[in-house]
């Protein structure tokens, strides 16, 4: 499975989107566009990504640019995974 598919599953689970993320594309905006993505949800997403992809996200990594779109988040994860 691609990073993007894994991410969509994580987003769906953390934000309880009930399948809404299925047709999201790389350009789909997240932060500021998905109402469920509040600060608690961002924190939940960070924790779920750490557990799901088995890497550590540092304070310095937490930047709004990463959470801008599905593509930017996907690129962040790919870079973290060393891909």
């Amino acid at each position: 499975m691609s990073v993007e598919t894994d991410l969509k599953n994580i987003l769906d689970s953390v934000l309880s989107l009930q399948g809404r993320s299925a047709d999201w594309q790389r350009g789909t905006p997240l932060l500021g566009a998905v109402p469920e993505l509040d600060s608690m949800a961002v924190l939940g997403l960070i924790t779920a990504m750490e557990e799901g992809f088995a890497f550590t996200i540092h304070d310095d990594d937490i930047d709004s640019a990463i959470f801008a779109t599905l593509g930017s988040l996907s690129d962040f994860v790919t870079a973290k995974l060393g891909g």
Binding site: S39, M40, V42, L43, I46, D59, I62
Partner: peptide, 23 residues
Amino acid sequence: QQFLRLQLAGDMVRGESSRGNTS
């Protein structure tokens, strides 16, 4: 630590510059 991180996440969601990190 995760709770303190909420500060960072909140700053980011509101589009404000961060007021200091967790440490």
